[in-house]
């Protein structure tokens, strides 16, 4: 068992990076590793609780039929996966980034932190992966 530290920066619904990193974290937890995520800049909104799905007027689908994927649900799902697999999973939202964007109401699990927590995770984890915006 090892540990992975991931820094992500992309906001929700902006980049394919988000889906890839969710898939990667999910697989990492299922393989028995611990994971720490530092959600920086726009990524601080990934766990924002008020996110809502919507209908799609182009396709004529209702909100229920559309099943719009919400990033907050994926964050909750990763916490559930960690619990099911007995792994430690930390999600740290950058506090200043949260305040700037007004996204402090988040789902259960994430905690508030700062760059020092990323440095701490960098020093404590076996691997660090930085996924910057373009």
């Amino acid at each position: 068992m090892s540990s992975l530290n991931v820094l992500i920066m992309d906001p929700p619904y902006e980049s394919a990076n988000t889906a890839t990193v969710f898939r990667m974290i999910d697989s990492t937890l299922r393989k028995g590793h611990d994971v720490t995520v530092f959600a920086y800049e726009g990524a601080a909104a990934l766990s924002f609780k008020p996110q809502k799905g919507h209908p799609n007027p182009v396709k004529g689908t209702s909100e229920e039929e559309e099943k719009h994927p919400l990033s907050k649900d994926f964050v909750e799902g990763l916490f559930a996966t960690a619990r099911e697999n007995g792994r430690e999973f930390k999600w740290i939202n950058c506090g200043l980034c949260v305040d700037e964007r007004g996204v402090g109401d988040w789902v259960e699990g994430p905690v508030r932190g700062g760059p020092q927590h990323f440095v701490e995770a960098f020093n404590n984890c076996d691997k660090t992966l930085v996924i910057a915006t373009r």
Partner: peptide, 11 residues
């Protein structure tokens, strides 16, 4: 290949 392979290389 799949995401599991990427995780194996990462770790």
């Amino acid at each position: 290949t799949g995401m599991d392979t990427l995780v194996d290389f990462t770790m």
